[in-house]
Design a protein around this nucleic acid. Sequence first.
DNA 1: TTGTACGCGTTATCAT
DNA 2: ATGATAACGCGTACAA
Lengths: 345, 345
Amino acid sequence: MSEKRGNIPRIQDVAKMANVSTATVSRVLSFPDRVSEATREVVLQAIEKTGYTINHSARNLRKGGTGAILVLLPNLANSFFSRVLKGIEAVASGYGFNILIADSQFPPIDEATFGNLFNTNRIDGAIILDGNIPRSYFKRATRQKPQLVFACEWISDCAVTTFHIDNLAGAVMATDHLVGLGHRKIGHVTGPTNNILSQHRLAGFEQSLKKHNLPCPRDWKITGDFTIESGVKAARHWLALPKDNRPTALFCASDEMAFGLISELHQNAVKVPDDLSIIGFDDVEFAAHSIPALTTIHQPRRRIGEAAARALIHKIRDAEAPMPPQPVFELELVLRASTAPLPLC
Amino acid sequence: MSEKRGNIPRIQDVAKMANVSTATVSRVLSFPDRVSEATREVVLQAIEKTGYTINHSARNLRKGGTGAILVLLPNLANSFFSRVLKGIEAVASGYGFNILIADSQFPPIDEATFGNLFNTNRIDGAIILDGNIPRSYFKRATRQKPQLVFACEWISDCAVTTFHIDNLAGAVMATDHLVGLGHRKIGHVTGPTNNILSQHRLAGFEQSLKKHNLPCPRDWKITGDFTIESGVKAARHWLALPKDNRPTALFCASDEMAFGLISELHQNAVKVPDDLSIIGFDDVEFAAHSIPALTTIHQPRRRIGEAAARALIHKIRDAEAPMPPQPVFELELVLRASTAPLPLC
DNA sequence: TTGTACGCGTTATCAT
DNA sequence: ATGATAACGCGTACAA
């Protein structure tokens, strides 16, 4: 009860109560092994009694770190990312790191804001889930750069560790599925053109079609941007196509777009999957409960977040140490009700 | 270019370059007014040239704060909360605060973890979005308690500022809507029994029925827990009710439950709204694009988050200052396709 | 194994 | 208006 200073207990108070030096208390906290059983016991009790907890500002100042990591994601309101974030949060908080969150797309982040965030004086490292941050942002940032890891998305030709699924393979799986159902006219609703995921998924789509000797006119590749709204627009695009020559199946680069698409088609009395088969990508929560339930490609969002966080913390602790091998994230085709065999007639 | 120490520029480097003392540099940063126009100019240039950025650990240590706020939410993977979080993030980062995120329900937070988080040595304040944190957790926490604000949910009889909509009024709006459509047999799918929101929404539901002299048998109040899965279960409950005496309309305490409900009904060939009208609560993203589009009560999630964050920061800056008046969050009945007039036959 | 003493980078206080 | 300097609380050489 005899602490100084507004009664918030400091390491000194513990030291006094335990009749040891502050150094010993510190050691008990950081390297319990370097302290004798007996004194450790006493110190631990004193900590308990005083209610002492470490002052992170002081520790970080002393150690030259911040104890914080930045998570930069395109859109916090998107449930896909919040799942990844959950994985990150779980491991980061386990290691005692704070999380700094920032949106990069809504609204778009400018260079000044980015520089302000991506700064050794604020964070020890960053997990970036947006592959469209301009390269120049990184170059101009402070000379001393925090550790960096990409997740889900990434910047090509950039020697930075990244954690993501094999998007091309996933797109092949999805397209193969449609082909397997007998569809011959297959279209694709893409993500934003400049997005790396869009590009890989488009490539997978094209690779599958080529493998099966199937054509894909320009008109059947509809540009979207991953959002529900762009799915709605894609539906209008499809509706405007000539009835005798339009896709009987569509591969959407995101579940969200598939939802928008199906919803708008429904407004126009087009039945999924009877009139048109639709497959999505991601397997968000809602895919299992939409009407019709959405066939899609599942990716382990949470595990990706966890892996990225673990790797980043590893880097922060020892920048030189070799990275542990990157896990392979398994993909899974989840069969539900939005795809069906091509009617024979 | 002549900084010491691993070339990360410190306030001293700026001071030297500008030929002033460190104190002056500090003042330029914190109280520009207390410095002459001329020197301010020089210092600003020096800051620019050196690429100096503030060291938050040092500042926080000196100031006796942490620069971080905790956001404790029931489930990060729930899109309702991620929207609120977005509002919080926007204002917190604007004021230079870091955000510490933690899940309180998945998995349930234990007292030790909570105490570890809710600690003046780690955070300056907390925004709690979970009304089911046991009171004892707060009592036992460190004597020095961080500032606290509730949002969305809250603990009753607790003299803590909270930001939330009028849930009872919202429930009345929803139920009145069903009554207005001619429904006389109206049921309710509740949230978890111990949840404050569930209780208020249930109260609103009952109040509206009473006002209209409508009965509500026990069987028509179905206990859920806000999740999609509990909506599915509610559907099975409804299906098991006698066909000649079951609700023709259902008010769901969350959109998620409404989705699960509709999805499961669809599996069983029950048509919404033809066979059963359904209204939700929250107006999450997806409500506008589900099939059928969901009639629901809209609440301004992002604004709630912003208001809570602003209030908390206000408290942190000056604990004694009177709180600004709490904004009134407007509710809105959003009419879509999941509710319809009771058929006359 | 333990204690002493200094420094981490900043800001508040007190001078000037 | 500006400068010198003493804290802030902790970790870690180094000495004992």
